Amino acid sequence: MGTIWDVRQGRQVDEQTLLAELSQARFVLLGERHDNPDHHRLQARLVEALTGSGRKPALAFEMLDVEQQSAVDAALSREPGNPDAIAQAVAWEQSGWPDWSLYRPIFAVGTGRGLRIVGANLPRAQVKELVMRGLDALPPETRTRLGLETPLPEDVARAMRAEMHESHCGHLPEPMLEPMVLAQRARDAQMADILRTTASDDGAVLITGAGHARTDRGVPAQLARLAPGLPVRSLAFLEVSSEAREPRDYAPPDSPGGLPYDYVWFTPASEREDPCAVFRKAPAPEKSPGK
């Protein structure tokens, strides 16, 4: 299904070549569009292939947070091999993530292979506190561990603010851009730290959004800081567009170096409503004084 592109080599590869490369990595990131069923089917297929020889990497999810880990562990202790026990334990249907049926195939491979299922994300309440209060919302040890006291290079900070602006259809109030960037940084660093600390002898695989899988500033960049020298491979599933003809056309505007992944797997686009339509019905946000 779709073309697999080796970004560094600038060439198309087949699935077996991709698997051979991913199997050599300590950390593998599989970056998705959350509501695309094809992305989840391919993630499940890759996890199954990567563990077919008996390897047992930790299987971590952006969609689960660290405070849910005890509930996940307890559910699988009661019902080993039952992925639906996880959904019930974390109240998935009330979580705000896409329907459980999309993610179930990945969890099913994980539980069927006996992999440790890991919650990688910061709790939502903590992210909200971080947005509202800034670094004061986190203990000093956590701020240091996540590297949040080190300022971002201005070009990176500017690019991330622009990304937040665009992802919220231009309706995020300007004073909120910097706090949202801080939250994004914290989540990337948290997921990298969880991969580092929970990896088995066979490493770890992270199921996450494609934005978090960016090699230039996402979880891979944080892994380079926390676990220098350990091999990381990032694969993003990207939806094809009639407006883009070449792989380089899919590079984000703030990535002048090209696609910020090691590999890209191009897939059909899912049908969805325009996420910005709801904003067009509301008045534009007022600019801050002096802006």
Rank of each mutant, 00 (worst) to 15 (best):
P140C: 12
Q222Y: 10
W265D: 01
L22I: 08
G110N: 04
A210M: 12
R124Y: 00
L195R: 02
I117F: 02
A199P: 13
A277Y: 04
F27Y: 15
R161E: 04
V72Y: 06
Q69C: 02
P256L: 08
E32V: 08
M164H: 14
A89C: 09
D73G: 02
A71R: 13
E48I: 08
L182W: 02
G81Q: 04
N82M: 00
V13F: 01
N36W: 08
A192V: 11
A192I: 03
D188H: 12
Q88S: 15
L18F: 05
L238P: 03
V72H: 02
L259W: 03
A213M: 09
I86E: 00
T208P: 07
D249W: 00
D14V: 08
A60Q: 09
L42H: 11
Y250N: 04
C169G: 07
T142D: 14
A189P: 05
A120D: 07
S255H: 13
G218H: 03
E79Y: 11
D254Y: 14
A210K: 15
Q24T: 08
V28Q: 05
D249T: 01
I4S: 05
E174T: 14
K56C: 12
W100R: 02
G147S: 12
A58I: 08
I4Q: 03
V264L: 06
L76D: 06
E154R: 07
M176C: 02
R33D: 10
R11Y: 01
E48W: 06
D202P: 07
